[in-house]
Nucleic acid binder design. Structure first.
Lengths: 253, 253
DNA sequence: AAACAGTGTTTCATATAATGAAACGTTTTA
DNA sequence: TAAAACGTTTCATTATATGAAACACTGTTT
């Protein structure tokens, strides 16, 4: 059941493995520390970083540390996959954020995870913020649960077989049967809640976005701190999000 | 005066050279055609593409052609350079676009060229559209001329020494002295016009964005077809763009 | 001022891994 | 049915990526 043993170009694999070390939490790397982190030889790492720099894939900052470079910005903006979804979700997300005054996210399911395609941040100081292009566990996010809920039954079973439902907080649904019931509820009510299941203090509500064949292709969520996010507002949130979802659907057709 | 002869990892260089073939105009590539295009051996190209696919840097579409993959979307969104400018320009650009109803661009100078960091497209059917992350000649765009105009004198001289002012249209300024005078005028009036200098039928107006030390760090432009873009509207455009520029400046501080 | 940890960088012999021509499948076109 | 595309695999050859060690540079400590 393993991947075919392809003969990959190891230098290229290493280069991208190095790039994967650059995250929001750690944006800068020196030669030595990155070599240690990845278990590569110092010289090899030096030469790879040097090569990537000469290509504009990395660049050095004032402290001679490496940063992700503008070549990646350029290439990232050329990615065609989900481009129309990203483009047509922008304005509707902004409208939702303006009305609700909380952060709005937009994502799809990719490799059993939520892939965030777009967001508009809350104008408020205390706010949730997710990195566009990043991935998150599906089973403990509102967006993810919506996207799972509207998957074909067989795909859900497959998901539950492959993914282990590790607890992120005490509220995370870690039992497959409980999750199945939750997904059923979500299908019925057409929205999902995340009641601090991913992170304590963080509440989200998400709703589906359909294509013209009635299939769910994406999901919109609104996220806020539990201190502000009152359940009595849900009905109003739902109608605002629904309006946004319909705007995206209209744009796509 | 040449670069030091660095010893680069040739596989990595080749991999990114292949990636550079993926553009807006040509988003899909097969093994053979890309090998021919880049002058690489068929087998080598096959293995590199295969490697990039296994890393998520490329992916195959339904026709078994390669497309830029989501790994690049992920990495592109992690690029920290100019991130705050991109973030804080978004809403102001939208407001300008809403008022003027033409496409609004936002860019900086990078390696003697305009790098587009953000845009909001005109709601109208006939519109200009530039790829975010792409580069354009500075001397024949309104944004570029603004950014050049506010460069230190010495840098302008350097630019004129390095860059050859090739004509894009019959209106392109191809004479260095003429361009110097144009830049002087731009400094005085605090805006630049592109009167079909890059492309026939395309008119733009651009204004500077300052940092808190009074240096020009970016520029906003409004672009439209010459059929709609009337010079008598310039005064009104200027005040709207100026308001947007000030909004970005306020956001940045 | 000297020794000492930190860095990044270069060297060079060695082994590994990338290479390409050719042969092989597979699909599409004539 | 043949032919012409294409992607894929093979294998001997060659090139190049590799890593230990030495080197250079910087800032800190003694």
């Amino acid at each position: 059941m393993n991947e075919d043993v392809k003969d990959l170009n190891l230098s290229v694999v290493k280069a991208f493995t190095l790039l994967d070390a650059f995250t929001m939490d750690k944006q800068e790397w020196g030669v030595r520390e990155l070599a240690i982190k990845k278990g590569y030889n110092k010289s090899t790492t030096y030469r790879l970083l040097n090569t990537l720099e000469s290509l504009g894939v990395l660049q050095k900052n004032d402290n001679d540390k490496y940063l992700l470079g503008l070549k990646l910005f350029e290439l990232g903006n050329l990615v065609a996959i989900h481009k129309t979804l990203r483009k047509y979700s922008r304005t509707p997300l902004e409208n939702i954020a303006r009305e609700i005054k909380e952060t709005v996210h937009f994502g799809v399911l990719d490799k059993n995870q939520v892939l965030y395609l777009n967001k508009t941040e809350s104008p408020q100081g205390l706010k949730v913020s997710t990195q566009i292009g990043s991935y998150q566990k599906a089973y403990c996010t509102a967006i993810g649960k919506v996207l799972l809920a509207f998957l074909p039954e067989q795909k859900i079973a497959e998901y539950l077989k492959v993914v282990s439902l590790d607890a992120c907080t005490e509220n995370t649904i870690t039992n497959p049967e409980t999750l199945q019931k939750e997904l059923q509820k979500i299908r019925a009510q057409e929205y999902a809640l995340d009641m601090e299941e991913l992170e304590l203090g963080l509440i989200c509500i998400a709703m589906p976005v359909y294509n013209n064949r009635g299939e769910v292709i994406a999901s919109i969520s609104v996220s806020g701190p539990s201190s502000r996010f009152k359940l009595e507002n849900i009905e109003s949130y739902i109608s605002i999000i629904k309006k946004g979802a319909q705007a995206i659907e209209a744009n796509m057709h």
